[in-house]
Nucleic acid binder design. Structure first.
Lengths: 130, 130
DNA sequence: CCAATTGATCTATAAAAGATATAACAAAGG
DNA sequence: CCTTTGTTATATCTTTTATAGATCAATTGG
């Protein structure tokens, strides 16, 4: 399955779902136009409350990753240019965690490159969601 | 002041303090051996409860950024090798946020380089905490 | 047309996290 | 001896997270 919930994860469920959708878009597993499951359907699959899924969808909508339409359902649609203004602050914190722990800058940069290289590798030409 | 609290920030106060200490270490503003204010002192300066500061310190201690001693006080001391195991997952999420929003990989990598270049630039040779 | 589905909205409840407030204690240091 | 400090414990309060049930309008599919 594309999305899953880990109860041992420290992040709240709606945040896990949000992160997984964002990473799935980056990976190319889902892309512009792809439809996401309905809140009730996904909630049933994941055995969580549909309000929790709705919260994740609402967050993704606010951030400009998806568009929710009563007619056509929920679909991936990127709006706005580039990441949020606070993005660099978050990046800085993550990189600081590694550098403060003694990881060399070259290794950190190499890790960034590896992660970026993995993005887009799972792109599909058809519209299937596997 | 080195540390400050932003009530409009979405992160909890103890997390803000934790992040600021980690970034201060990465920046070189504080380094191995430097002592941090006592929990009660810092709490008074920031106008927060000292339990909140103690929680931040305890988190930093668990992560291996500081060492707390009843004798010598709280000081920066890096223990363990490199970042935590979950670090790469966090990095992946942050980078995905930018790439999914259409930011080119080269620009993302350039942002990483800029942030890394800023680290260590504020290193002090004396032991002052300005 | 009709039944089912869906997004949304509302209320309610419960558990957990975050933050504050006091208090007490042992150890250390002046 | 007295203050400071880290630590621990308890209590309270607010916010967040998650679940639950119910309703409604709109849409879809038979």
């Amino acid at each position: 399955m594309l999305l899953n919930v880990d109860l041992s994860d420290q992040r709240p469920v709606y945040q896990q779902l949000r992160d997984q959708v964002v990473e799935a878009i980056a990976d190319g597993v889902i892309h512009e136009g792809n439809r996401l499951p309905t809140t009730r359907q996904l909630a049933a699959d994941l055995a969580v409350n549909f309000h929790t899924v709705a919260k994740a969808y609402d967050l993704l909508r606010q951030e400009g990753f998806i568009q929710v339409s009563r007619k056509t359902g929920t679909a991936v649609r990127i709006t706005g240019e580039g990441p949020a203004p606070e993005w660099r602050a978050g990046l800085r914190t993550v990189l600081a965690e590694a550098f403060a722990k003694g990881m060399p800058k070259e290794e950190i940069l190499a890790a960034c490159r590896e992660v970026l290289d993995s993005f887009g590798a799972s792109r599909r030409t058809d519209g299937s969601l596997a």
